[in-house]
Design a protein around this nucleic acid. Structure first.
Lengths: 222, 222
DNA sequence: TCCAAAACATATCGAATGATATGGATCATG
DNA sequence: CATGATCCATATCATTCGATATGTTTTGGA
């Protein structure tokens, strides 16, 4: 008897080989789910992309849905890894000097970090699709993504917008939603945005141009 | 021999009964594809929701993909029906008086019309999902939606932003993308936005609050 | 070296899905 | 009312998909 019910396996021993395969599967699944959503991606396609055979998915993740949830947790982990520092820094700035101007600078920091996540690599294009899809049509991973990524993000941005200037609390919340949603232009729907702009990437000077627009918008909150 | 190759049927005679069924199928398909995307929706589910049997889909639309394309065309038609008037009005305003202030007012008109489409009904929530999904991951209907809906929308908004104030042409294009994308907060991902705001709809006073934010943003373009 | 745990592979099953063959019911019109 | 076009229903096929039963190879520690 290997492992009990259809549950996923938990790493325990010092076996390193399997962990590598686990990661390959996770990576392939992130890309596949990000593109096609839960139903759009097939287990065979993921297995092939990861260079493993079909039962490996059950072996490591218990099945398709387990793999999907594991992807959500991985996204949360990566999001946190990238956002913890800028958010801490923003909070430090605000504790040191509690003015509207500092709030705007702190907000720029956070928005820049979010934007960098959106733009970074092809890999991120996948998880942006994953998150936005799950927010649009709640699936198995909705709760974890909403509570761990979306809601905290909207809250902190809304809070800072409130401190930043002339918006009343509700208007600040709405502004936070609009601001974060506008980032999706370079997240999930980036290919289209690039086509509209006649660009073929969003790096260097081009990323700076986008950030200039976002920064200007934050300055206008004064 | 009824009709030639797997092609869809074209209405010709004065038969009215079939047209009603055709519309029921189209409506059900819009909702289903809007929620789950091309692969996420099943033909049986659509047929049942429309109150017809399975072969009816082939009979009227030639198959699943034909139905999908018909949905895209229907979306284009509805979009045009709602946007033609505000766009004509905006153009008339600009022809009468070619100033930045008028441009901002004209832009408010167009953005309001777009926002109303996003907010309107549950029905629109479906096609917003349809369009955004197709923009995120190009499928069979990408071309028609991009050329007939997305690109013209971005262009006209970008043009007006350019007229509206202090943005250089490229910055105006970027701003147009950000502005339109921010509307998706109340389009595809509306349920989440409502949850974040503690609202249960976006009507009346609440829609006015959202529009106030958007209008303020347009005023700040000066 | 030995062996149990861990990792991988082959083959196949049952359900769901898109499609369609085939025939019957309904409708508009001469 | 007869007749062909239009519309609808039953039954079934071939694929694809997720899952898993079963057995083999590899790994790392005693």
């Amino acid at each position: 008897m290997s492992r009990s019910e259809g549950q996923a396996r938990e790493v325990q021993g010092g076996y390193a080989k399997g962990e590598a395969a686990r990661l390959r599967i996770l990576e392939a699944a992130l890309a596949a789910f990000g593109e096609g959503g839960f139903k759009g991606a097939t287990t065979r396609q993921i297995a092939e992309a990861a260079g493993v055979n079909l039962p490996a998915l059950k072996y490591y993740f218990g099945g398709k849905e387990g793999l999907y949830l594991a992807c959500a947790e991985e996204i949360v982990a990566r999001y946190r890894a990238r956002m913890v520092e800028p958010i801490l820094q923003a909070q430090a700035m605000l504790e040191a000097l509690h003015t509207a101007e500092v709030a705007r600078d702190a907000l720029k920091l956070v928005i820049r970090a979010l934007a960098e996540q959106m733009v970074e690599t092809r890999e991120v294009e996948a998880w942006a699709g994953f998150v936005l899809r799950e927010m649009a049509e709640p699936g198995p991973a909705f709760d974890i993504l909403y509570e761990q990524v979306w809601q905290p993000g909207v809250n902190i941005v809304g809070y800072m917008i409130g401190l930043a200037g002339g918006l009343r609390p509700k208007a600040a919340q709405i502004e936070a939603l609009l601001l974060i949603s506008s980032l999706s232009a370079f997240g999930a729907s980036r290919p289209v945005s690039l086509k509209s702009l006649g660009w073929d990437d969003v790096e260097g000077e081009r990323f700076a141009q986008v950030m200039a627009n976002l920064d200007r918008r934050i300055d206008e909150l004064a």
